[in-house]
Every structure is written in structure tokens, then in C-alpha cells.
Computed example of a mutant assay.
Amino acid sequence: MKKINLLTALSAALLLFGCKDDKGPKVPLPHEPTETIGYYVLNEGTQSGGNATLGYYDIATKHFTPDYFGMQNPGDELGDLPNDMTIYGTMAYVTLNGSGEVVVLGATDGKVRKRLAVEGARSLAAHDGKVYVSSYKGEVVRIDTLSLTVTGTAAVNGKYCEGIAVWNDKIYVANNATPEGLQTKGNTVSVIDIPTFTEEAQITTPTNPVGLTVGAGRLYLTTSAVYDDSWTTMLEDARLHRIDPKQNRVDYTFPDVTVSSMAVLGDYLYTVHFSWETYTGSSRKINLATDAVVDFLAEAPGNSVYGISANPLTEELFVINSGYTGPGTVDCYNADGTFQYQMTDRAQGPYVSKVVPVNK
């Protein structure tokens, strides 16, 4: 495989740091990437299984390395249950929910730069020189991207924080559990003011909030399926909701959209889902301006569908299919749902959670 140790060539292109001045520390200069050179493929593995991996797909060679992390970090292991990954500046950040860490990697070489202790680390959002981490502990953790240190925590009135998003100097985090710790019974999204880094409000939501993303100036929330106390009867399937952040309220629930994973690309929100109750799959393309909903993929996804990721630079979407007990796949589509290529027919399985573009 062609190595992607391109730090020398890409250091100017990915992110330069300005000189220190009298007013404070150096800050990142603006940068607009122009080309995607590859993709990281993050595999959760099984809980406590020690089989999580980070793969890499090289666009130039069309070659996929299933355990790129192991190749770049001999003798080291990624960790237990990596749930999320994002690239910000010259670094990549990976949450390790089972290990209670955020591991920081070089964005283009995948080599470990630092490991930060973050109990119950779950999801990531980056904004203005900081990376924010939702935690199952019931808080949001702030990481400074210059010093690579944890610089603060913001407690929320809930537990098992899941999805996280940033909009207009506010952090939004889904509380999947009640303040008493009843998981899947939570019904709030916390609003954290960034300057003070404290919770300033809560938005009441349907039960079991999980995913959050921003599109067209509004927030979109997914809620997972709700079951009765015996876990034998589904009371409500996974749903998509829209939050008005100016009013701090859920202002619309999409009646015909069941969703387990979503991604924003341009003016549209794309979703995938498989219902184990009806044993049917669905994929939707939603116009963020009009709320119009149409089918996305020509064929409805099967029971292996596990997630969807987007690359705004190439205007491509990646549908992740889990192998559950064996290798999964990552399929690339354009914005109209036309199949482009299969990134790999042997994506490390069984639970690929994220596809992250590496740009220059």
C-alpha cells in the first residue's frame, strides 16, 4: 500500500498555525480543503472483545488496509468500543467508550499523539479550536486542540449523553437517560453556553434521544425505538425530529421517516434504517428547506445497514453495512442515490461505525 505519511507535503495544506502575538496563543488559520486523498474506516468491534480497528482506504491506489492503526502503531491497540471519530486541523480524535479515552492521532498518518482520559467518551463535535466530547458520565468534556489537554467539563441534568452538535455558540447534547440513570428513558437535549461552559437550558424531546446534527440553521434529532418494560413490545419505532434552536423546542416530527443514522449533505438530510419489528429497511432524502421526503436508494437497505456518512467535498455518501459476525462493507453513492463503488468488500467487521474523509 502507498503510505499516507504526507505530513511534510500536507502540513501547509491541512492547517497552518499563525504566529503568537501579544494578545494570546497562536490560532489556526482558515483553510479550505480541495481534495480528498483517503478515508478512515472506524470499526467498533465487540464490547470488551479487543477487536476494534481503524482501517484506511487510499483513493489513489484504491487499496484498503483493514488494520491501518496497527500498521502505523506497532504493538499498540486502538482500544475498546471506538464510537466516533472526527478530524480537526492536523489531528484526528477518536472516542473509546469502553476504554474511557479519547485517542488523538495524526490526521494523515494515523499515529498516536496522545491519549486523554474521558470516562464514557461517546460522540464528538469540533468548534473554534476546541473538540467537545459527550460522555456517558452525564457531562460534556472540552479538549483544547493546541495543547491537546482537557480544559473543562460541563455537567448536564441527565446521563448517558449521546449525540452532540454545535450551533451559534451553543452545544447541544442528547440525554439518553434520566438524571437517575434510567437508560433509554431520557427525554431531553441539554443546551450548553460555550463562553461560560455551563448548561443553560433543556429541550424536552420524545423518549430515547440519540443522534444530533445541524442542517440549514436547525437541529435534527433521532430517537431510538421505545419498548415496554419487558422489552418484548415496541411502543414506538426510531424517529426523526426537528428542533428550533431559537425557541428551544421540538417543532416537527417527520411522520413517515424511521431512522437509525443520518448525515447532512448540502441542502438535504439523508437517513437509513432497518426495523427489526417489521423487518423492512428504508432510506430517505429530506429537503431541509421544504421538509419534502423522497426515497434515497433504489433498493431499500437490508438488515445489515448500520450507518451513513457524508463527504461534503466530493458530494458522496457512504452506506455502512455491518457483518455482525463477519466482515461488513462500505458502499459509496452520489447525492441522487446512484451506486458509485464499494470502498471495500472486506471492511473490518463486525460494526463499522464511521467513515471519515482525509482531505488536503
Rank of each mutant, 00 (worst) to 15 (best):
G349F: 00
F17C: 14
D21G: 15
N43A: 02
P28N: 01
L10I: 15
E316K: 09
D345N: 15
P312W: 02
L116G: 03
D109A: 04
G281W: 06
T198P: 07
V214L: 07
E77D: 15
V112E: 14
G120Y: 03
T271A: 12
D251R: 07
P25R: 06
L7Y: 07
L313Y: 04
P301D: 00
R239S: 15
S353Q: 02
V191Y: 01
A238Y: 00
G55P: 14
L15M: 12
S11R: 12
S261I: 12
Y279R: 05
V112F: 13
N51T: 11
K111T: 05
K23R: 13
Y68T: 02
V131L: 14
D22W: 07
R218F: 02
T36F: 06
A298D: 09
S261D: 10
Y306H: 04
K354Q: 03
A225I: 03
F69C: 09
V131H: 06
S147N: 10
E119F: 06
W276Y: 11
A121F: 00
V330R: 11
C332F: 04
E162S: 07
V94E: 00
K130F: 01
V294A: 09
K20C: 08
I164G: 05
D80W: 12
L317V: 14
W276A: 03
P30Q: 02
G326P: 14
L297H: 01
Y268S: 10
T325K: 15
Q348N: 13
T232W: 12
V272T: 02
G49W: 08
G328V: 00
I164N: 00
G110V: 00
L240P: 15
P33R: 01
V293C: 08
S260Y: 01
D267S: 06
V189I: 14
Q183D: 14
R284H: 07
L6N: 08
Y324M: 04
N83M: 12
F274G: 04
I171L: 13
A107F: 04
A92Q: 04
N73M: 08
S322A: 09
P28Q: 06
G266H: 05
D169H: 09
Y39E: 08
L6A: 13
